[in-house]
Structure formats: structure tokens, C-alpha cells
Design a protein around this nucleic acid. Structure first.
Lengths: 117, 117
DNA sequence: GACACATATCGACGCTCGTCAATATCATTC
DNA sequence: GAATGATATTGACGAGCGTCGATATGTGTC
């Protein structure tokens, strides 16, 4: 029960393009929270590392070395990404596997793209 | 000469989807800088207000009241959005008009969306 | 040029963020 | 259940952010 199709914060971001009208406070807050999670280069890199890994998942032990940060710091960043609804955490044995929530980035992209159709 | 199709920071973000492989430090840095600009609810709202305005442009005087912030604070946020390459500033008479850089949000969305084709 | 108006900059204030070392928690193995 | 290994949490630190009032800059008007 660790992977949800769309998490609350991501759901709020979905289907409310920035350019489709004035966003209310809740929509702006939800979008900003997700963008803030992407507002750190190390988190962006962590995300890309996970996506580039086999099976689109990685454990903290795979992530520490590429970004050159301490284990607690990587754990901290992963927690933020999970809370933002961008990444899912699954405990398997001793390891915690992180994977990108399907559709999370796409729905965020949808909130950015203009409706040119 | 205030409006550019794609500014440097946005250009770096373009065409390097987060899920297409491990991003190098420069790409991650450029993407994070743009996302950080969107990581504040007031800036997200300012962006949507501009997009929803007639002619897709607005001056600071139009923006202060809707977000409920002081004029210097709005000016500060607009500066960040301009530096992020998301918004263009054009001085016309006494007023400074802000507009969303064409394609900026779309290329950001492109950096997020997975290539499902 | 003096004035009025719109916007930008400055200086300061609390608050949050990114980072680490130290430690705690949890799952596995013996 | 004691030991081991992977990850999370805690506490602390400096750096950066969001905000404001006060002030400076720039633009048009008289």
C-alpha cells in the first residue's frame, strides 16, 4: 500500500493549468509545494537517477554515491519527494525502494502546458 | 528587446526530460532553478494572473491587490520570475508590463513529461 | 526643472532549507 | 535475543528566502 496512482497534492495540481485562469489560493499552494520539491538540484538529480535505474527503482544505497551527499541527507530529500507525491517508497526486506509515482510528473507537466488545442 | 523565445535557463531545461537518463549537474541545476522560481504560491498565482489578463500582460499595479502583498514584495517576486526566464518585462511609459515568455512553461512541461511516443 | 507617479532597490527581520554527525529504528541473520 | 546492516530521526549550524517600511530610480507632466 505504498504506491498510489495520484497523491492528494499531485491531484490538486492536476487539471488546473497555470494559464487557464487565476488560480485560487489552494491550487497555487498545492502547485508551489510540488514545485518546491523540485527546487533543489540534488532532488532533481535523484529523480533522474531513479528513473534511469533498472526497474525504475532504487534504494538509498544506490543514491548516496551519485549525488555525493551523506546518507541522512539523501534520506531527507527522499522524504520530501515522497511527501510531494512524486516518489513512492516500498520497504522490501532491509532495503527501501523508491520509484517515481506513475503519472505524477505528467500531471505536473499538464499543469504547466498551455491548452493549444 | 525584452521578449526572447527561450532564455538560457529555460533552454537548459528544455529537451532533457527528467526521466530520460541521469541528468548532469548543470542540467539539474538549471531545472531546479526554474522550479524554485515556481516554488512559492504567490509567484504561481502571479503567473496565473498575468496569463488570465487581457493581452496576457499586467503591470505591478494590477498584481499587488490580488495577491495581497506590498508593492516592493510583488516587484521582488516579478524579478525572480524574470530571472528564471518565465516572465518578460517591458517598460511602456510609466508602467512596466509583465508577460509570460512564450514557450517557457511548455518547455518546462516537456522536461517533466515522459516520452510515451 | 519641479512635481507626481510607478517601480526598483536597500536594510532588516524572522523563518525555512540543506547539510552533517550522532543516534535511533527497523528488518534480517545467527 | 544478540548482532549486523539499511534507513530514518534528531539536533545543530550557516545560508537563503519572503516580507516589510523606507528610500532611490526612472518616467511623464506641468
Amino acid at each position: 500500500m505504498t504506491v498510489l496512482p495520484v497523491l492528494p497534492s499531485a491531484a490538486a495540481a492536476c487539471c488546473s493549468p497555470v494559464t487557464a485562469g487565476v488560480l485560487d489560493d489552494d491550487q497555487a499552494e498545492a502547485l508551489a509545494r510540488t514545485f518546491k520539491a523540485l527546487g533543489d538540484p540534488n532532488r532533481v538529480k535523484l529523480l533522474s537517477i531513479i528513473a534511469a535505474s533498472e526497474g525504475q527503482e532504487a534504494c538509498v544505497c544506490d543514491l548516496t554515491e551519485p549525488v555525493g551527499l551523506s546518507q541522512p541527507t539523501v534520506s531527507h530529500h527522499m522524504k520530501l519527494l515522497v511527501e510531494a507525491g512524486l516518489v513512492a517508497r516500498e520497504q522490501r526486506g532491509r532495503w527501501a525502494y523508491f520509484s517515481i509515482v506513475p503519472g505524477a510528473l505528467d500531471s505536473l507537466a499538464g499543469a504547466l502546458a498551455s491548452r493549444t488545442i
